[in-house]
Amino acid sequence: MTAPTMKETINSPDQTGAHGAPSTPDSLESAILGTYKRAPIELVRGSGVHLYDAEGKSYLDFGSGIAVNSLGYDDPGLKAALHAASEGLIHTSNLYHTAPGERLAAALVARSFASKVFFCNSGAEANEGAFKFARRWARTLGEAKHEIIALRGSFHGGSPSAPSRRASRSSNAISRSSMPRSARIRSLR
C-alpha cells in the first residue's frame, strides 16, 4: 500500500525561506555531506508531539522524523525500554543467539502472515534483502526471474538497486534502476 506517493524529501527546493538567521552552520561550514537541504533550525529537545529549537521556539511535529516517531517525543515507556535495554548486551553479531531478537521475530510472526523474519538496519536494506530473497526463491523454482517491478511514482529507498529516485519524480516515468540488466527494475503498467 503506497499512499500517497512517498518520495523522501531529498534535493527538494529551498525550504529555508526568510524566517530568521540559521541557528546551525550553513552547508558551507558543515562537515556533513550535503545530501539533505536542511531547514535553518537546530532541534534540541521534544515532548509529546512538540519539538523545540535551540532558541526555544516550539513546533507541532506533523512529520514524526519521516514516519519514525509514532510514539512522539520523550515517551516514558520508550525511555524505560531504552534504559532497560542498556543494562543488557548491546551487540554480539549474528554468529550467536540472543533472546530479544528471537522474541521480536516471534512477535512479528504471531501478528502477521509471515513465518520468518530477517532483521537489518534500515528500510533500504530491508528492500534490498527482499529483492534478493525473491530472486533466490525464483531460482529454486528453476525460473530465470530476476526483474523487480515497482509501481510508477513509488519510492523504495535510496540503495542502488531500488527503483530510482529520479524515476519517481514523474508519475509517468519508467522506474528502472542503474543496475545491470540482470538486476534491472521496471515499472508496472
Binding site: 524505560a80 535495554a85 549474528n94 540472543t98 531478537g101 538496519n121
Partner: peptide
Amino acid sequence: HGTTFGGGPFVASVALHVLDR
C-alpha cells in the same frame, strides 16, 4: 545473506516495547 548489526539485542529489546505499543 547477512548483516553485522541486524536484530542485535539492544535494538530488538527496544523494538519489542514499540511493537507492543
